[in-house]
Computed example of a mutant assay.
Amino acid sequence: MSDLKLVIGNKNISSWSFRPWILLTQFGIPFEEISLKLFTPEYAAIIDKYSPSKKVPVLNDGDLRVWDSLSIAEYLAEKYAEKELWPKDQAARAKARSVTAEMHSGFTGLRSNLSMNFHGRKPDFSIPEDAKKDIDRIQTLWEECLSSYGGPFLFGKNFSIADAFYAPVVSRFITYGVKLGPKASEYVQTISNLPSYKSWGEGAKLEIN
């Protein structure tokens, strides 16, 4: 059994948990999944055992606790440097970090109005203006990266931390029927067709059935 334990919330709604989960899964890094149901007495009773912040996701590596999805990603990038979770090229790596950090700290309009509901479908949802601005910015980022690095992933032929951080956005765009241009639509297909993405979806489906 792996020493890595990833503690996550509900797969249907926990976008923060999705990021490190798909990262670990896509790179074939063994880990034990511990799933807690958010907003329940059981969660409140047990979360202290795993997470100093009382939030998920949190990665336990032996006695070490690493919380926050970006911190987890950076820790994994160092621990498994040979797997190149960030782009190898320095300039591409710097841009990938910027793109990832913008997702991590921004897009509050999107987060607030288009919450993650992996198996929900709301094609007639009226998207508020602040969320539309975020969607436009995300589409611009995707198109720039795909054009500059050749796709099919944001920084070329290999999946990276940047793709992991935008995987929940792909889910949101599908849920709410967001209209995108050709390049961004193709990227949505690329991510949503990954076995790791589909595996997360299967777990989410079990929660709501």
Results as ranks from 00 to 15, higher is better:
Phe107Val: 09
Lys49Val: 07
Leu114Gly: 08
Ala44Val: 05
Arg65Tyr: 01
Ile13Lys: 02
Leu4Trp: 05
Leu110Asn: 09
Asp48Gly: 13
Gly120Cys: 07
Arg97Trp: 04
Ala73Thr: 10
Ala81Phe: 10
Glu33Asp: 04
Leu85Thr: 06
Lys37Phe: 04
His104Arg: 04
Trp86Ser: 08
Arg97Ile: 08
Leu70Trp: 07
Ser105Trp: 06
Lys11His: 14
Leu38Gln: 14
Thr25Lys: 15
Leu24Pro: 06
Met116Pro: 06
Glu32Met: 03
Thr40Pro: 00
Asp68Ala: 12
Asp89Val: 02
Lys54Met: 06
Asn12Lys: 06
Leu23Cys: 10
Glu32Phe: 01
Arg111Ile: 13
Asp61Glu: 06
Ile72Leu: 10
Pro52Cys: 03
Phe118Asp: 01
Phe107Ser: 07
Gly120Tyr: 00
Lys11Pro: 02
Arg93Val: 02
Glu78Gln: 15
Gly28Ser: 00
Glu42Lys: 13
Glu33Leu: 14
Glu82Trp: 03
Tyr80Phe: 15
Arg65Ala: 13
Leu23Gly: 08
Arg97Tyr: 09
Ser14Gly: 06
Lys79Glu: 14
Ser71Asp: 11
Lys11Trp: 03
Pro57Ile: 05
Arg111Ala: 12
Ala96Arg: 08
Leu85Ile: 12
Phe18Pro: 01
Ser71Ile: 02
Val56His: 03
Leu4Asn: 05
Gly9Asp: 00
Val66Phe: 03
Val56Gln: 02
Leu36Met: 09
Leu110Trp: 09
Ala94Leu: 11
Glu74Asp: 14
Leu114Ser: 02
Met116Leu: 15
Tyr80His: 15
Asp63Val: 05
Ala45Gln: 15
Ile22Gln: 06
Phe31Ser: 11
Arg19Tyr: 03
Met116Trp: 09
Ile8Val: 15
Arg93Leu: 04
Lys37Tyr: 07
Asn12Pro: 04
Pro87Val: 09
Tyr75His: 12
Asn60Asp: 01
Phe118His: 07
His104Ala: 11
Phe118Val: 14
His104Lys: 04
Thr25Ser: 15
Tyr80Met: 08
Arg65Val: 08
Ser14Tyr: 00
Ala94Trp: 00
Glu102Thr: 12
Asn60Leu: 14
Leu76Pro: 06
